[in-house]
């Protein structure tokens, strides 16, 4: 499954970059994320509850950041196991471009694979669910940064 998109976030590039590297912000923004713990600068462990069609499963796994080019781009890779529900793995290339001093355009391309029961039962729902989740994540990120800027 491949997805790509663009979001305009009303925050300076530095703030967006910082948020994308902050486990607490990521945890708040990833839909269904119950835990996200930093192991090192580039490694985290995560627990995400996903619901696709008739299947609801808790995925536990590793998240790794790579190709770091602050504050312009990075890749985020993840792999999670959901027991008998199956597994999910994937990654996103994220890049940031300044749109004036107070705004940033975030572009992403996502490649993800799912396997096991979620793929068998949720097949026709996976693409739309993934698009919805990606949309939610960036909407959350925008809200979060706006809150921060309001707070500052």
């Amino acid at each position: 499954m491949d997805m790509n998109g663009q979001e305009r976030i009303a925050a300076p590039i530095g703030a967006v970059w910082a948020a994308l590297n902050d486990p607490q912000v990521l945890k708040n923004c990833i839909p269904g994320c119950e835990a996200l713990e930093k192991q090192s600068d580039t490694e985290m462990t995560a627990k995400v509850v996903l619901r696709i069609g008739p299947i609801k499963a808790s995925f536990e796994g590793q998240v790794t950041l790579a190709n770091l080019n602050p504050p312009h781009s990075y890749s985020i890779q993840g792999e999670g196991k959901g027991g008998i529900a199956g597994f999910a793995k994937g990654g996103a290339d994220v890049s940031l471009v300044e749109d004036g001093p107070a705004a940033t355009v975030l572009s992403y391309t996502v490649k993800a694979d799912v396997g096991g029961k979620i793929a068998q039962l949720g097949g026709r729902l996976i693409d739309s669910t993934a698009r919805k989740l990606a949309g939610q994540f960036f909407a959350n990120l925008g809200t979060c940064l706006n809150d921060q800027s309001v707070g500052a």
Partner: peptide
Amino acid sequence: YDETGNVTTGSFMD
């Protein structure tokens, strides 16, 4: 089957 070997028609939904 999808290209990773998932059966995408595993129930009477599909």
